[in-house]
Amino acid sequence: MNQLIYGLITGLAFGFLLQKGQVLRYDRQLGALRLQDMTIVKFMLSTILTAMVGIYLLKDLGLIELSIKSTILGGNIIGGLLFGLGWGMLGYCPGTSMGALGEGRWDAVWGILGMLLGAALYAEAFPVMKKTVLTWGNFGKITLPEVLGINHWFLIVPLAVGGVLLFRWFERKGL
C-alpha cells in the first residue's frame, strides 16, 4: 500500500514539473524532433545531469544500488528506431501522453489507445523476439565506466560540463 502512495506522490510531482516546463505539448516534442525548439532537450538533459550526479553520489555513499538493464544491440537499435518513428507520428511518449491528457490536450487519448494495442502486440511477439532480435549483440548488464575501466566520475564531470556548454550554445542560438 505504501508503495502505491509513493508512486502516486512521485507521479504528481513529476507530472507537475513536466507541465510547468511545457514539455507535454505536441508542438514542443515535434519542435525538438525538427531541431527548431530545444525546450524538451533542455528539460530532459537537465533532469539527466542532475539525476546522474545525485544517483552516483548516493551509490558511492552506499545508500542505493543501481538497476542496470541489459545492453542488447538488436533490441536497443531496432526498438529505438521503431520508437522514434512512432514518437514522431504521435508527438508524445508514454509518460507525456498521460500528462498531455491531464492538461486538456485530449488527442493524447488516441496515442494511449494505440500504445495499449502496441503493448498487447508485443506480448504476442515476445516469444519470437526472444529467440531472434533479443539474442543479437547481447552484452549483458554493462555500464560505460566498466567497459572503459575508469572511475565513473571521470565520465560524469565531462558529461556535466559538456551539457552546460550545450545549454549555453542553445541560448546563444535562441533555440
Partner: peptide
C-alpha cells in the same frame, strides 16, 4: 480530428512496440 487520431493511434502502436523491444 480523423487524420490526427489515425496518425496518433498508429504512432502509439509503433512507439510502444519499439519501447518494449528496446526494454526502455
Amino acid at each position: 480530428v480523423g487524420p490526427r487520431a489515425a496518425v496518433a493511434f498508429i504512432g502509439g502502436v509503433v512507439a510502444m512496440f519499439g519501447a518494449r523491444l528496446a526494454d526502455g
